[in-house]
């Protein structure tokens, strides 16, 4: 074998490991309500390798044909800026608000964020009683029940929903559905 054949292949790109700390931010995006707009937003995230931790979308202003998309994403600060700039480039996007950044700037403790979860648990006897007791402690509502199941409805911040789900696991949790985060900036101003 020639000596050059022993040289392992090298890359045409400069590859570097980046170790900047990641942050979790909630973005509120006002868009024209038209076909394909959600696909554009999601395609941007998947195409450029950004994370979507949670996604909520619905028409919010019928007369102006506007929808609001709320995305929770985790990224480094420079990437977060890129995400916002790329979203701003999409033609149907009106505004992008970084609610996490906003609450940091205003020294609010947290931004106003809520999720709704429906949690189904099955079981009888002691375990069933324990499930109900825990649900009560979390202020979850019973929205459906038979003698061997409950469906609880819980509203709260993501952390609370996650805690609730984890305590329900040992007491018969079989199914969960979550809405994803809905969020608004605190205070009187609109976006």
């Amino acid at each position: 074998m020639s000596e050059s054949a022993l040289i392992p292949p090298a890359s045409a790109y400069f590859l570097e490991d980046r170790h900047d700390p990641e942050e979790r931010h909630t973005l509120s995006i006002l868009v024209d309500n038209e076909p394909g707009v959600l696909a554009r937003v999601i395609g941007l995230f998947s195409g450029r390798g950004y994370n979507i931790d949670s996604l909520t979308v619905s028409e919010t202003e019928h007369d102006r044909h506007l929808s609001r998309i709320t995305i929770v994403t985790t990224a480094t600060r420079p990437v977060l800026t890129q995400i916002k700039n790329h979203l701003g480039r999409l033609v149907p996007v009106h505004r992008v608000n970084d609610l996490t950044e906003l609450s940091l700037q205003r020294n609010d403790e947290t931004s106003l964020e809520r999720e709704l979860a429906l949690v189904k648990v099955t079981g009888t006897g002691d375990i069933r009683a324990e499930a109900l007791r825990l649900a009560d402690a979390f202020e979850a509502k019973v929205v459906d029940a038979t003698s061997d199941h409950f469906i609880f409805q819980l509203t709260g911040r993501t952390a609370k929903v996650e805690r609730f789900i984890s305590v329900m696991k040992p007491v018969g949790l079989v199914e969960v559905c979550r809405t994803g985060v809905a969020a608004l900036a605190r205070g009187p101003e609109a976006m």
Partner: peptide, 27 residues
């Protein structure tokens, strides 16, 4: 990347002004 080569060794001693119509090109 055809311009910068290694980004950590790219023009280490310079201040940089960037004029661009697209904010996503910046930084």
């Amino acid at each position: 990347d055809r311009i910068t080569g290694r980004t950590d060794a790219f023009s280490p001693g310079s201040r940089k002004i960037h004029i661009d119509v697209d904010p996503s090109s910046i930084n």
